[in-house]
Simulated assay, not measured.
Amino acid sequence: MAGNIKDREAYQHLNFVYQAALCVLAQNPENTELARFYCLTQKTISKRLVLRQDPSTIVRCLSCGLTKQFPNNPKHKLWVDQPEAQLENQTSQDYCAMFKLWTDQTVPKQPKT
């Protein structure tokens, strides 16, 4: 299962940078600048590759102690994971009706001459 992960090397790189930030703080808690640099590097990599991290993450600022949590809804499903989003689960009538609805909303009406 682990061999099928998309962008596996990128996730490994993110994991390495995260562990490096933790290691720096474990060795010297005063070295927050280097830990911040590693965290910024991690954020830059994930933005550039459009990778998402665990949404249930709890982040705590080392300077002011502010804690921020990104809650996770376990019942949430992405649209592409829902059965009605899959083309093979739709009949041709459903597809034609959706296409007509879409074109009616996006294509301007031509005036009759």
Rank of each mutant, 00 (worst) to 15 (best):
I45G: 09
H13I: 09
S56W: 00
Q42R: 12
C61Q: 07
P111D: 13
A97R: 13
P29C: 01
Q53E: 13
L87G: 06
K43E: 12
C61D: 15
L101N: 14
V107E: 07
H76M: 05
L78R: 06
K47Y: 01
S63N: 13
P29A: 01
L62N: 11
Q12T: 04
K47V: 01
N31A: 15
D94I: 08
E84P: 00
H76V: 00
I5G: 04
N89W: 03
T67G: 06
L101V: 03
Q82D: 08
T32H: 07
A26N: 10
T67I: 15
P83V: 11
C96Y: 03
W79H: 09
D104H: 05
P74A: 01
H76N: 06
K43H: 09
L87C: 09
V80Q: 14
H13C: 08
P29I: 00
Q53S: 11
H13M: 10
P83Y: 05
N28P: 02
T91C: 10
I58N: 07
D7I: 00
A26P: 00
A10H: 11
Q82A: 09
T103W: 02
R48C: 04
K43C: 03
Y18Q: 08
L22A: 07
A2G: 15
L14M: 10
E33Y: 06
A35C: 04
E33Q: 15
T41S: 12
P74S: 02
V50H: 14
Q93T: 05
P111Q: 12
V80L: 13
T113Q: 06
Q12E: 14
Q42C: 07
L101W: 05
Y38W: 01
N4A: 08
N73V: 06
L25V: 02
L87K: 09
R60Y: 01
T57S: 13
A10F: 02
L66V: 09
K43G: 06
K43R: 09
A85L: 02
Y18R: 08
Y38V: 00
E30L: 10
Q19H: 05
C23H: 10
N31W: 07
Q12H: 07
Q53C: 04
E88H: 12
V59Y: 10
C23Q: 11
M1I: 05
A26L: 03
P74E: 03
T103P: 02
C39N: 07
W79C: 03
A97M: 08
T113V: 05
H76R: 09
I58S: 12
F37N: 12
A26F: 01
S92N: 07
H76L: 09
K43P: 01
K75M: 06
C39T: 00
H76D: 06
L34E: 12
C39E: 06
T67R: 13
I5R: 14
A35N: 04
K112Y: 06
K43Y: 02
N89G: 10
P55Q: 07
D54A: 11
D104Y: 01
C23E: 14
Q19A: 03
M98K: 14
Q93D: 11
F16C: 04
E9R: 06
L14V: 03
P55H: 04
V24M: 05
N73H: 06
A20G: 01
N89D: 11
K100S: 11
S63I: 06
R48P: 00
Y18V: 03
K68G: 03
F99R: 13
L62M: 10
C23S: 14
W102V: 09
A10V: 15
T32Y: 03
